[in-house]
């Protein structure tokens, strides 16, 4: 997705919108078993977090096959789904997280194009 900002990592933390850079991100990634999509998604989110949220994020990976009741409670439909619980607002990011730009938008780390 073409945006006005070229994908250069440094400006993210300096984004004027994020005036509380110390806020911790609470993220949960729901996957359904060990599928190529799940594996890709886990790898992608880990990379993104390390690059953009180093030291201020909590990531939990949950396999719905192991805890199926969570699918209902968390309103999960698509898999994989990444839920950004904090900071608010709540966001659901679906897919294998391969489009880094969109993930960053979803995590409010970058404005919508």
């Amino acid at each position: 997705m073409p945006t006005e900002n070229p994908p250069t990592p440094p400006p993210t933390t300096a984004d004027p919108r994020l005036d509380q850079p110390a806020q911790t991100y609470v993220l949960r990634l729901y996957v359904t078993g060990v599928t190529p999509k799940s594996t890709r998604a886990i790898a992608n989110i880990k990379t993104i977090c390390e690059e953009h949220l180093q030291g201020r994020y909590r990531l939990e990976v949950i396999d719905l096959y192991q805890q199926p009741q969570l699918a209902h409670g968390e309103q999960i439909i698509a898999a994989p789904t990444l839920i950004k619980e904090l900071p608010l607002p709540l966001r659901r990011i679906i897919g294998d997280l391969s489009s880094t730009e969109r993930v960053l938008v979803g995590l409010d780390l970058r404005r919508h194009g």
């Binding site: 729901y30 996957v31 359904t32 078993g33 599928t35 999509k37 890709r40 998604a41 992608n44 719905l64 096959y65 199926p68 699918a71 209902h72 999960i76 439909i77 698509a78 898999a79 994989p80 789904t81 990444l82 966001r91 659901r92 990011i93 679906i94 897919g95 294998d96 997280l97 391969s98 489009s99 969109r102 993930v103 938008v105 979803g106």
Partner: peptide
């Protein structure tokens, strides 16, 4: 936010 390939695995599980 859609960020790539997905399926309806969650729905199936539910």
């Amino acid at each position: 936010e859609e960020t790539g390939e997905f399926d309806l695995g969650g729905l199936f599980v539910r």
